[in-house]
Simulated scan of single mutants.
Amino acid sequence: MTDMSYPGWADGYTPTRLCFAAAPNESAELWRERLVGQHGQCPPEEAEALICLGGDGFMLETLHTTLGHELPVYGINCGTVGFLMNPAVPDDLPARLAAAQVATLHPLRMKATTMDGQCVHALALNDVFLFRQTRQAAKIRIGVDGRVRLSELICDGVLISTPAGSTAYNLSAHGPIVPLSANLLPLTPISAFRPRRWRGALLPSTARVRFDILETDKRPVAAVADFTEVRDVISVEISEARELHTTVLFDPGQSLSERIIAEQFTA
C-alpha cells in the first residue's frame, strides 16, 4: 500500500480518458449522465481511470472486475456509508484524479470444499467468513500453516479479513482494525461460546489458514467470500493472493490509510 500519486501517470499528467460506472439507483444514474456529458465515456479497455458512482457495495463489485488489470478506480459516494468512496463529486474531476493518492489492495483466495465433494474457489477483498446454517452452533477446527492452533471453536462463525476489510464485518465482530501497511490478517470469532474468552488472532499476511468443520451433519456451516456463498462446507482454505491487486484512488488527505486510522478514534 502506498499514499502517493498513481505511478502509471507521469508527474503533472492529467488523465482524460475516463470510464463511468453507476450503481442502479437514481442519484448514481443522474451523476453518471452529467459526468459523461462533461467528460465523455471511454471503454474500460481504453480508459485511464474507472469512476465508480454508488456506495461501498457497488464499489466492492467494481473492484472485483479490475483485479489483475492496471485500471485505477476512483469512487464517488452516491450511497450510504461510503467508506471506500470519495465524499462528493469534484468540480474538476481530471485534476482530482491527477492529485489522488493510491491504495493497492490484495484479495484473499478461498477454496471451499463441500459435503458432496465440490471445490469452490473465490476471491475476497473484504473478508472470508464462516457461519452456522441452523440453530446449532458451529464447531470449527483452526489450522495455520499446517499446524492446528485451535482444536475446537464453538461459535456462530469465524472470519478472516483483509486490512481494508478490517473496518467492516470484522469490526462489528469486535475484531481489531489493521493498518494497510501492517501486512497482517485479523482472524476473528463470531459470538464464540467455547473458548469463551478467545478473541481471535493477528496473522502474518503470508499465513495459510484452514478451517475444518466438525460434526458437519449436525452442525452445517456456510462460507462466504465477499459475494460468493457456499453452503454445507467441510473445509475452507484461505490465503492472500499477493499476485493479484486492484488500485483505488482517494482525494488528498482522505487516503484509505488515514480513514482506517481515524476509524479507531470514532466513538
Rank of each mutant, 00 (worst) to 15 (best):
I213W: 10
R210I: 05
V144F: 01
T104P: 05
R219Y: 06
R219K: 11
I190S: 06
A201T: 04
G200D: 10
V221T: 06
A138P: 06
P163I: 00
S151I: 08
V148T: 15
A137D: 06
L153S: 00
T216F: 08
H174I: 10
T134E: 13
K139P: 04
P204R: 14
T162I: 01
L203K: 05
D116W: 13
N126E: 02
L171E: 00
S205W: 09
L214P: 08
P204Y: 09
I177L: 15
S191N: 13
L184F: 08
R132Q: 11
P204S: 11
G200E: 12
V158Y: 11
L130I: 00
D217K: 12
P189W: 04
L171K: 09
S166Y: 02
L184W: 07
S181A: 15
S191A: 15
D145P: 08
E152V: 14
D156R: 04
R197A: 14
R197G: 11
G200Y: 08
T216W: 10
A164I: 03
D116C: 13
L125K: 05
L105Q: 07
A100L: 09
P179A: 06
G175L: 00
V144N: 03
S205Q: 14
A168Y: 00
S161D: 02
V148M: 08
L153I: 05
I142T: 00
C119M: 13
A122C: 10
R141C: 13
